[in-house]
Each structure stands twice: as structure tokens, then as C-alpha cells.
Design a protein around this nucleic acid. Structure first.
Lengths: 220, 220
DNA sequence: CTATCATTCTATAGATTTATTGAATGACAA
DNA sequence: TTGTCATTCAATAAATCTATAGAATGATAG
């Protein structure tokens, strides 16, 4: 094999991975799987795909070894193949934010930057937890909370926020988190809480980023 | 705009980047541009593409803002848009090595692992340079050396190795480096040098990785 | 066994991407 | 001006990717 053939093979193998990443639905699926294992049906539901189509995309990801699947009872659970997949996704996200002005714009618009939500870093939250009595709300769907969540966080799905508002104290600081930078559930929750007289702010990272930093996590 | 439309936009923007990455020729181009700016012609030559085809691929990369171009005299020089692009590429490379057994295999086979080339880390090299009189050889094409190279390294292109062998001393340690993990020039050079009675080993990183770590670099 | 259900497979038409060819552009030199 | 040269543009056919619909699989429950 000459050098050219060698290089062609190498870059073809690499492109096998990047091709699998080159589709919006598959990126959304990876972003979702960063929360933990999920069945085809749940993935399809969360991404607005038909089950058949979601299955197709999952098989593409599996062929590129970005995800693995494991059958449990009637369901096939997919997960990210390993930490490197999430790391690469983070790297691509950073790249997106730095190169793509429209992306930044889109997120700022939707988050209605004008409202200037206060945010707090994981490090600050850890310090605060030591000193004060803060309430941490996980506003992701309960299924994702059940797989794993920040230690001492309460499951408080965005969907049930209004209904369960009375459960929350007005006199304690509330910190809210969700899936990550492409997820708006925490932003919307904080906005709603503050409008209703609570003292809420947003963790500036999603759960997967917290977990990737090896910060304290609880599993159901 | 509802949440679904928002997510579709976000992931479509991100996929704009990953689609641009989803082609073996474009990956090879990025890997080459990590060495520094290069003209379309040089890129085409190094990647075995026709100039027209290379230009097409470069325009795709440019549209995704992964590269920028600047005209100088008759030539259009392309470079990586910024550090995040190289970081993402490193992340993807790591992903490739961890998920893709064939990729590892390909490289090990070609490097003929059997010969067990000694390697040295950037940190070790820095320490060694303080104490001993080592010779550092940059075996990349001279053009790439001229853009930037490891401080105190000598340009010694792989292609001229045989011809210029007499210039090297047999009694000093020789450290060789090239473009990076997908480049074999340093491996081949080390093998050839050792076979001819020199004391050579390979730096375990390519030039771009050295530069990304902010280690001392010299520009022509 | 039959029925059910989650998932995967198959087939297909439509959309996108690719390499190639040759023409067009636009800077520079004579 | 005219010619040269590097690069880009435009057009095309071949290859690949995508979503959809419906059939097939394979595990579980009755």
C-alpha cells in the first residue's frame, strides 16, 4: 500500500464518523443521548421523528460506533458509545458558537437575552451548597432525571411547573438546570419562577456537562 | 417560533458544520491547513486532487466558516478559521482512535509497530533541550517549515533525507517530527536514520499540536 | 399456538453531494 | 491592449442520502 492509499483509507475512516455526524436529526439524537440511555420510541418522541426514521438514524450512528444499543425487556436502549463522543460533541458545539453568528443569534433571541437571566457556574453552585440552603430543580422530563441527576436536585419537569408551583418556597434561592445549551427548559422555568416572585437563577451548564466534570451525581 | 422550530434551526446550523466535515478530502484539507496557510494549488498537490475539485471543497469549508481565505499576489491562501477548528479536529481524531479499531489497525500496520520506534513527548523534549545537545529535524515539506516550526528545529524534508544524510552527526541524539498522527514522514525518517546508524526517535505529536500547546515556535 | 408490540428491514422516489469538464473571472505582466 | 495564470463558476451525470410506507423479525404475553 502506498502513502496515497494509506491516507485515503485513514481519511475515509475518519469521514465515516463525520458523515454520521452530518445530519441535524442525528445531532439532536446524540444531544439527547447525552442525558442517558433511551429507547427508540422515547428518542423518536423527543425529536419529533417517526419511529422508523429514528431507528434508521440510530442504526447509522451505531454503524459509525457513536452509539451502542442494549436490549432490555421489549425495548432497545441506545446510549453514547463513550465519553469521547460527548467530548467531540462539546467541541463541535464550541465550534458552532464561535463560527456561526446565526446560531448565537438564534439562541439569544429565543432566550430573550433582554430579560438577563442570572446564571451560576457549577463551581459557584458547589460552594453555595456548602454554605446556604439552596433548592436545585431538574426540569428535564422525569425519565431523564431517573437515569441520573445532580446530587440533591429535585425532579421538577418543566411541563408540570405551573401545577406544582405551590410546592416551592419563596424564601430560598432556587437553581434550575436542564439538558444543556440547546435546551431552553431551564431558561423558561427561571423566567416563569421569577415572574411569580421566586428567587431563581439558571445553572450555566446542562446535566451532561456537570457529569462530565465528575461533579456529584445521583442515580435513581 | 415554537420550540420544535427553534430546535430544528439550531441543529440545522450545527449540521451545516458537521456536513462540511463529512467528507474525506475536506478532512485531509483541514489536517493540512493545520500546518499553516496554503494556496489552492499547494493543497491540491498535497491531497492529490485536481485544482478545480480542491477549490470546490475549499469553498464548502469556507461557507461553513471552517476556513478563511486571503489573496496575496496571484495566490489565494486558505487557513483554518481559528483555534476551535483545530480543537474540534483533535477531538474527532481522538474519537476515531477510540471507536474505530480499523483506523488504529491501519496506522499501526503502516508504522510497522513491530519496529517499536522510540517516541518522546513534547515535555520530555523541552527538558532534554535544556540539558543536552539534541538535533530536532522537521521532515515536513520546506514550505510548511517556512510558515512556522518548532524553535531550533532544522528543515530536513523527508524527500531529501537520503541525499542530505551526510549533514547529520552520528554522535548526537536526533528527534524527528512531522504533521501529526496521520502523517508518516517522521516514522519513516526515524526508521531510515536508525538503520543507518543514527540515534533517532520520534516526537509523539505533530507540529500543530506542539503549537496549540503554546510551546516555543519560530516563524520564518 | 396466536396476538401484540417494539424495532428493523426493504423498496422507492426525491433530494443532495460528488467529480469532471470546460468556460468565466480577475489580477498581473508585457 | 493582449496574454498568462490561479482560481472560481456552471452544467452535468453518477453516486449517495433521506423520508416514507409497509412488510418482516423477534421477543413476550395470554
Amino acid at each position: 500500500m502506498d502513502i496515497r492509499a494509506f491516507k485515503d483509507s485513514i481519511y475515509n475512516q475518519m469521514a465515516g464518523i463525520t458523515k454520521a455526524l452530518g445530519n441535524p436529526h442525528r445531532l439532536e439524537i446524540l444531544d439527547l443521548l447525552a442525558q442517558g440511555a433511551a429507547s427508540v420510541e422515547y428518542i423518536a418522541e423527543q425529536t419529533n421523528l417517526t419511529v422508523g426514521n429514528a431507528s434508521q438514524h440510530l442504526l447509522v450512528l451505531k454503524k459509525a460506533r457513536l452509539v451502542t444499543s442494549e436490549r432490555q425487556w421489549k425495548y432497545n436502549y441506545y446510549s453514547l458509545a463513550d465519553q469521547n463522543v460527548f467530548d467531540a460533541w462539546c467541541s463541535l458545539r464550541r465550534l458552532g458558537f464561535s463560527q456561526n453568528a446565526e446560531l448565537k443569534q438564534l439562541i439569544n433571541d429565543y432566550r430573550s437575552e433582554s430579560t438577563h437571566l442570572r446564571t451560576i457556574t457549577p463551581h459557584e453552585l458547589i460552594e453555595k451548597m456548602k454554605k446556604e440552603d439552596v433548592i436545585i430543580l431538574d426540569v428535564r422530563p422525569e425519565k431523564e432525571y431517573n437515569i441520573a441527576h445532580i446530587e440533591d436536585a429535585i425532579s421538577f419537569p418543566k411541563a408540570d411547573l405551573e401545577k406544582r408551583l405551590h410546592e416551592l418556597p419563596q424564601d430560598k434561592e432556587i437553581i434550575v438546570y436542564c439538558r444543556g445549551p440547546f435546551c431552553l427548559m431551564a431558561d423558561e422555568a427561571v423566567q416563569y419562577l421569577n415572574k411569580n416572585g421566586f428567587n431563581a437563577s439558571r445553572l450555566d451548564r446542562g446535566f451532561p456537562d456537570w457529569a462530565a466534570q465528575k461533579l456529584p451525581v445521583a442515580t435513581a
